[in-house]
């Protein structure tokens, strides 16, 4: 029987899941994914997580607990840096050690992912992770090569305008040919951490809601790396965290696009970087005359508040547009 490797459907799942799935499968393991977030998973997470962390980290606790009974190993790398000369939020760094305190968990694959000095940090992490399953170095190298290829394809699909769930459906051949989203009357940019905006439970289905109200949703993940990095470099001072850079770079790029009618920023309550990037983006959006809405999500957000704000925001955007035309 193959070893079962559990991967929680949270945090950087939305960026790197296709890669690690192929990697572990090429090594002969079976990948078990936690189910999409639900009230129960979040409740489990809230019960077990420390109080100070942000909503998505609390949710991760719930996902990991769900995997405890299903997997032999849980893949929970200690992510230090995913870009050269940049760090990622320190909560990612502490995550495996926070989770380790939970009872009844299988062993964690808590390898360090550190690409601060150079990009080979990813391969080092893969090597260490692979050793949990096989001691054959060549097999690991081969699996890593396949995984990289898949990852490139996945990022290309995202840049075509697909959402992570749609792109993954294409990667796994669950759909023949995923249609690109039909262009709608207005384009709305949705900026936020990937694990907040793409998790349909904690984001209260914001993407589907915006689409059903007649908007095409654009996100930071649709912007190619070169472009958002160039835009983020326009800031007087570099922002520390990789994801914050990505968000602000993409926001600045979209602010210059004339076909964009509005921008929505989703912040998690208790997220330090969000409170800063959100405010920075708001100032730039205001200066550019772009309609801007800031939504804060936390564990007891009522759906009604989000719906009212989104509705009013889209009314405002469409009203403005109707008068300009």
């Amino acid at each position: 029987m193959p070893i079962k490797v559990g991967i929680p459907r949270t945090l950087l799942y939305y960026y790197y899941f296709p890669m690690w799935k192929v990697f572990f499968e090429a090594l002969g393991a079976e990948v078990v994914l936690s189910p999409p977030s639900t009230k129960r998973l979040l409740a489990e997470g809230l019960k077990n997580a420390v109080d100070e962390v942000c909503l998505p980290i609390k949710l991760t606790f719930g996902h990991v607990l769900d995997l405890a009974a299903k997997a032999d190993l849980i893949f929970l790398p200690r992510i230090v840096s995913i870009e050269k000369k940049e760090y990622i939020c320190p909560k990612f760094l502490g995550l495996p050690d926070m989770i380790r305190n939970l009872k009844g968990l299988p062993p964690l694959i808590d390898v360090n992912v550190n690409m601060y000095r150079n990009k080979s940090g990813a391969y080092i992490a893969a090597q260490e992770a692979g050793r949990f399953i096989t001691s054959n170095h060549f097999k690991i190298w081969n699996a890593y090569r396949q995984a990289r290829k898949v990852q490139k394809k996945y990022f290309r699909l995202l840049q075509l305008g697909l959402m992570p769930s749609e792109a993954m459906a294409v990667m796994e051949d669950r759909v023949r040919n995923e249609h690109l989203p039909e262009p709608q009357d207005i384009n709305v940019v949705l900026i936020g951490h990937p694990y907040n905006i793409y998790d349909s439970y904690i984001s209260m289905n914001i993407i589907k809601r915006l689409r059903s109200m007649g908007a095409t949703v654009l996100t930071a993940e649709h912007v190619p790396e070169k472009i958002y990095k160039k835009c983020a470099a326009c800031l007087p001072k570099k922002l520390f965290w990789t994801l914050g850079q990505h968000m602000i770079g993409a926001a600045l790029y979209y602010l210059n696009r004339h076909d964009v009618s509005g921008m929505v920023h989703v912040a998690a309550f208790g997220c330090g970087p969000d409170s800063m990037t959100g405010d920075l983006i708001e100032r730039y959006a205001r200066a550019a005359g772009m309609p801007f809405l800031n939504l804060t999500i936390d564990e007891h957000t009522g759906e009604a508040g989000i719906v009212t704000r989104l509705e009013a925001f889209l009314d405002m955007v469409m009203w403005k547009k109707a008068i300009i035309i």
Binding site: P291, G305, R309, D315, K320
Partner: peptide, 13 residues
């Protein structure tokens, strides 16, 4: 501004 909503904000929790 000029008869059109240009910005709004609502109290949080």
């Amino acid at each position: 501004r000029s008869g059109v909503v240009s910005d709004f904000s609502m109290n949080n929790v």
